[in-house]
């Protein structure tokens, strides 16, 4: 069971990334929880400075970019 963290204070880009993550999960038919993390302490604890960041099972996969549904699917497959 995996979990995805969307790391960002809640700006439009963060919301877009969270939506894309939800879509990727749905398209793959996975039971993965997408969590929006807006607490600065937790964002920085993942090593993210340029928001939004995305982490899968606690491992940072990318930051500073609105990744596409396809990008996120690849992150989940790896």
């Amino acid at each position: 069971m995996k979990n995805i963290e969307i790391l960002g204070p809640g700006c439009p880009r963060c919301k877009q990334l969270a939506e894309n993550a939800e879509k990727a999960v749905a398209e793959l038919g996975l039971n993965v929880h997408v969590e929006k993390v807006s607490d600065m302490k937790r964002i920085l604890a993942r090593g993210v400075i340029s928001t939004p960041g995305i982490a899968v099972d606690g491992v940072l996969k990318g930051s500073g970019r609105v990744y596409t549904v396809e990008d996120i699917k690849a992150m989940l497959a790896a």
């Binding site: 600065m40 920085l44 604890a45 090593g47 993210v48 960041g53 491992v59 940072l60 990318g62 930051s63």
Partner: peptide, 13 residues
């Protein structure tokens, strides 16, 4: 609180 925050070691790929 800023001084208490510690950055994680997560590396951006």
């Amino acid at each position: 609180y800023v001084w208490e925050i510690r950055m994680g070691r997560g590396e951006v790929p």
